[in-house]
Amino acid sequence: MDSAQHAPACGLMWGRSAYKHPGKWLGTGNRCGHDPAKGEFERYQAPETKRELPKVMQKLLDAISDYYHSPEILPTLSNLNGKANADGDPRSNRSEGRAAECLVLSAIVTHTDFASLRVGTPTRDGGFIPRSCGELAKVAGLLAPNSDPERPEPSQRFWRAFRRLKLAGAFTVHRQYETRPDGSKRARPAIKAVSFHFLVALGKVGYDALKKFRTWCSNRLKKQRAKHREQFPEQNDAQQARHKLATKQAGDTGITAHFTKQRRGPRDIPDVDVEKERQRQYSREVNDYFAQVVANNPGASTAEVRALVRIKYPPYEVWRDSQ
């Protein structure tokens, strides 16, 4: 059958054949629905909360939105390719990629425990529930097609953005696992620790404000855990008693009792690509140096700080070739 019989109403052709996939998003970006002027913030599914988000968190989310429209805010992320335009300015990443980065970073910020800067939820009994990438992808609106809502699976677009954020020094990742009674190991969601300097580099929250917020979160968590111990003294006492018994047993008999626990793997998982790993280390150095410049120049604007940082740390490829 002649494909022309299936030509769309607009008459769009692909060579000599009718273009069969004009779809809902004809005329946008690469026909995926992305509008460079707006971004894709409607994908983001903010978690329901009883109260409004703290001002510091809201400012960070606003800063992420600003990054989409002004990528020069985060050169370690927007200029990962290390290339420059004809006028010498760093070449920014594509808006489709930047939109995904904003969505993933927004999901991470809203699920960060600022007392420890780990991505997850601390529990009142002293535990911690790390958030999996599937859960973050669900909030970011970047799930794989036909993903099971009960077991969300990130899309490849999520993983690309996640890796770019890691290369930019936004967070570190290390695996963890638990050992089963039969000796086998079961993987647990990896621990993701957000960079303090990266959050400040977004330009909306300074070091002092972020430190105060972290202290407030830490004190609030301590009060919740103290209250939990008062409400459930048996649980806390039982845990202490078990460890005391194990200590006495080891001293009396030499037998060491092992408690079931989650074990962490390497503190920070390096990138499998040697060049990308070097670039990630460069990004972390840039973020750390950014902090030093801010501390040494308290009256400098964000733009002035970035200009000073650029003197020591030019775009990655220029810096790499100079080493």
Rank of each mutant, 00 (worst) to 15 (best):
Tyr316Ala: 01
Pro233Phe: 12
Pro8Asp: 15
Arg284Glu: 13
Val272Phe: 15
Tyr44Gln: 00
Arg188Cys: 03
Gly254Asn: 13
His243Trp: 13
Ile108His: 01
Phe114Ile: 08
Val56Gln: 04
Ser218Arg: 10
Thr110Gln: 10
Asp237Trp: 11
Ala291Arg: 07
Leu202Val: 10
Asn236Val: 13
Pro298Ala: 06
Pro75Asn: 05
Asp273Ile: 06
Asp268Lys: 00
Gly39Pro: 04
Val200Ile: 04
Thr215Ser: 13
Thr247Gln: 13
Ile269His: 04
Arg31Glu: 09
Asp321Arg: 12
Arg188Asp: 02
Met1Glu: 05
Pro152Lys: 04
Lys261Gly: 14
Ala201Ile: 00
Leu60Pro: 03
Ser95Gln: 13
Phe41Glu: 08
Ala100Glu: 07
Ala46Val: 09
Gly254Gln: 15
Leu142Ser: 00
Glu178Met: 06
Arg264Ala: 15
Ile64Trp: 00
Ala84Ser: 14
Asp89Gln: 12
Val56Glu: 03
Glu317Ala: 06
Gly251Cys: 09
Gly134Ser: 05
Cys217Trp: 00
Gln58Leu: 06
Tyr44Cys: 00
Gln239His: 10
Leu53Trp: 05
Ala18Asp: 05
Gly141Ser: 03
Gln323Leu: 03
Val272His: 15
Ala307Gly: 01
Phe128Asp: 07
Gln176Ala: 07
Gly265Glu: 11
Lys227Tyr: 15
Ala170Thr: 10
Arg306Glu: 12
Arg31His: 05
Arg131Lys: 11
His111Gly: 04
Tyr177Cys: 00
Tyr68Val: 05
Gln239Tyr: 10
Arg242Thr: 11
Ser3Asp: 14
Arg175Lys: 10
Arg220Met: 08
Arg160Cys: 07
Glu40Gln: 06
Arg91Met: 12
Pro122Asn: 04
Ala238Thr: 15
Lys204Met: 09
Arg188Asn: 11
Arg320Val: 01
Ala246Val: 00
Trp319Cys: 01
Ala303Asp: 11
Leu143Cys: 03
Ser106Asp: 02
Thr247Arg: 15
Arg43Thr: 09
Leu221Gln: 14
Phe196Pro: 00
Leu167Tyr: 01
Arg267Trp: 11
Phe259Ser: 01
Gly169Thr: 02
His228Gln: 10
Ala193Gln: 09
Asn287Lys: 00
Ser283Leu: 11
Asp237Ile: 15
Asp89Pro: 08
Ala209Met: 08
Glu178Gly: 09
Asp62Ile: 06
Ala226Glu: 08
Glu234Arg: 14
Val286Trp: 13
Leu117Asn: 05
Gly23Ser: 06
Thr76Asn: 06
Tyr282Leu: 01
Phe171Leu: 08
Ala238Arg: 12
Ser65Met: 07
Lys83Ser: 14
Leu202Phe: 05
Asn81Thr: 13
Met1Ala: 08
Ile255Asp: 15
Asn219Met: 11
Arg310Asn: 14
Thr76Gln: 09
